[in-house]
Design a protein around this nucleic acid. Sequence first.
DNA 1: AATTATACATAATAATATTATGTATAATGA
DNA 2: TCATTATACATAATATTATTATGTATAATT
Lengths: 115, 115
Amino acid sequence: MFSQEILKGTIKPLIIKLINDEGKMYGYQITQKVKELSSQKIVITEGALYPALHKLVDEGILVTESEWIGNRERKYYLLSESGKQTAVVKLEEIKESISMLVQLFDLKPLVYDVK
Amino acid sequence: MFSQEILKGTIKPLIIKLINDEGKMYGYQITQKVKELSSQKIVITEGALYPALHKLVDEGILVTESEWIGNRERKYYLLSESGKQTAVVKLEEIKESISMLVQLFDLKPLVYDVK
DNA sequence: AATTATACATAATAATATTATGTATAATGA
DNA sequence: TCATTATACATAATATTATTATGTATAATT
């Protein structure tokens, strides 16, 4: 089984990353996108997703925008104005952290470029 | 500040990695080694370290070996026989997970090799 | 008509980390 | 020599975050 262990503490940065790339996303869409990007290996559960999204809203990083598709709500999350700057910082931080893990665990670079 | 956020869930694999490399290590030594390897950026607190070590012992992955330096105990942790095999698996898992993070967060390979 | 997918969310619980506290010896610097 | 820092173990209270379970409801598919 794939170790989801390490993904702990990664959900918030991951959400920021995805919304930063896509412009706006809704909860269910995030779970599907992560599944897709990870070849079905990472499944974000609702109990982790929604509290994380709500926290990001509380922190002022994300704002919401509701859309009604027939009788069903679709709540989009997007970066607030200040959140756009926070995102840059947070993504820089998480990249540094991942690089640190690559270093600590002696991962060889996965892709070799030819000069 | 460096984001320790992502390091959550990494302590146990990291301990296994270090002990696997060094043969045996004691608690304090682990904290110092991690500080050193991370250029002082990662500080493992005792409240995280000792419970993690004890858990690894409970799981049968590590065993201990006490040494007395004067009046002071030095408790070495090493891989048990079965732990050696578990270590291989766990380290493979964590590497896969880190690779996944590299992919998800679009990290460029840090080192370029020339053919 | 039943099941699966879409879509939100919270509650109980478990796991794990942070911060604070506790005990004690050894070494170093003023 | 006295105070501080480093070494070395550990636990307790608390906080954070995730898993699992539960809840509600519509839309699409078999």
